[in-house]
Nucleic acid binder design. Sequence first.
RNA 1: GCCCCCAUCGUCUAGUGGCCUAGGAUAUCAGGUUCUCAUCCUGGAGACAGGGGUUCGACUCCCCUUGGGGGUACCA
Length: 553
Amino acid sequence: MPEKVVTRFAPSPTGYLHVGGGRTALFNWLWARCKGGTFILRIEDTDLKRNTPTAAKQVMQDLRWLGIEWDEGPEVGGPNGPYLQSERIDIYDRYVRQLLDAGKAYYCFETSEELDALRAQAEAQKKGFVYPRPQRFPSEQDVAKARADGKPVTVRFALPMDKPLVVEDVIRGRVSFHPAELGGDFIITKSDGFPTYNFACVVDDHHMKITHVIRGQEHLMNTPGQKALWEAMFPGRPTPQYAHMSVTISDTGGKLSKRERPQTLRTAIEKMPNVDIEKLAQVGGITADELKSFLKAQTTPDIPMIEAMAEHLGVRLPEINIVDFFHSGYLPETLVNFLALLGWNPGDQREILTVEELIRSFDLTRLTKSNSLFDRKKLLAFNTEHLRIEPPEKVLKHFKAYLAEIGSPVLKADDATLSRILQLCEGARTFEDVERKSAFVFVEDDQIEFEDKAVQKVLFKDHALEILGEVRGKLAERDPLTEHGIEEMLRGLAEQRQVGLGKVAQPLRVALCGTTISLPIFDSVSMLGKERALRRIDLTLQRFEATGQGQAE
RNA sequence: GCCCCCAUCGUCUAGUGGCCUAGGAUAUCAGGUUCUCAUCCUGGAGACAGGGGUUCGACUCCCCUUGGGGGUACCA
């Protein structure tokens, strides 16, 4: 009977979950789910400098949005806790003690500066740096003395140097390393008493009985050291199986990094002819000097400020974090499907898969070796498809969450109306499209903002205002107002005037919405109702008839 | 610099020595449907990085070159 699969996702809490992290989490989760195993969330918060207090919460929120639920971990508990490494220090200490007593690890007292100097020296001689292991390991007395002298105390693992370290990787096969190439003995306890990643990871993977470690290829070089550590601490126990996945690259060039969003904004501002620096800084909630410094690429304001300024300027920032996709109106099912297909495929020609299908088809042996670009255009196509195939209740739920997130007036609508809107927007690419097409229904009649371009192109052309007047008259006569009736009336009018339906529908659309884009015109009218529709037409006629043809306000 | 990984249409990929005249998706181009936007339908163009081997036969196996990615921390 094969042992039960246990996987884990082990993020360090430094901010929102980004696309790469989401993908790593997803593959681990998928593997656990398709094997009926356990998926553990473990927070690797051993770097006091980098961790932010809210980051772990953000990561968990993002995972939940994706639908990735953990069987063990923070907030849900489990038999192998605690799941925050910062709360497991005594466990690590115990193993360090053991290693020390067995002569497999030893104390060191160099400062970072001294280490840097040694590395520089090695580099000057064009040699790879290998930490020089002392002949005699320092004693506890030496440690006490070092501490008294104010020297930093760390612990290094004595890496067996005699034989090559071989890693069997599920994706990459057998990979061999020479201990010296790894830099020799590495630190397992930092001078602040916290374990390093490579050490804590091994202890926890053993304690939590992890069977498969699925992670990015950036960890491949850590694996031989971890394996050696494992053998020193848990001899005879099999290590987890390792699978080092390809990484995901940005389609805007280079790495998929958090810097991309500020960078995009900076580039956009540079290309703009005359930007009001004062005003923009005010919108972003920063000083003009801070903004100037940002533009000179000297500093970077926080993301909310970047976002506020981008929105003000109408600049689209590339999505990097999982939460960015939520904000842009994507379904989590789309992300899950798309991310799963970056470096994996079901082996047949299917591409659009639901989460259930993904779980059913997943297979760790079908992972791709080469890196892949994150193609946002293809993601958009996937979202269009998922909007169509996911159950309407599910879509509605996500749509409401989206509306709440962006603070849309459409939030005022009841579920039935929302469902109808969603149905009318069949073929939409994101919730953003749906919101934009339907928002007009939920703003006050006299609060409609007229897009200048729409007014010029539609209202001031081809006797549009005259037609609009006629539409108004016929609309007033109709009672009761039905969609069918509206259609009949508009089509009749177009035919009568010997013009296409567009010549009638577009002026009406602009009158109702202020823009040229909205829900289908018959539904637009019926959703507003007769009174509000008439009122909007009147307001439009009043406002633009006086202005005269060919002139906008 | 050293070490490790990778290499098929623009992009994501199928392909495990003959099923390949290299398949699908997306993007793109042309045409069509349509009240706007989007969808949708039809069709087109588009790839085995280069060079050596091995073999009756290489996209598939080996070597080199080139290119890309990662690592080289008291970060994870």
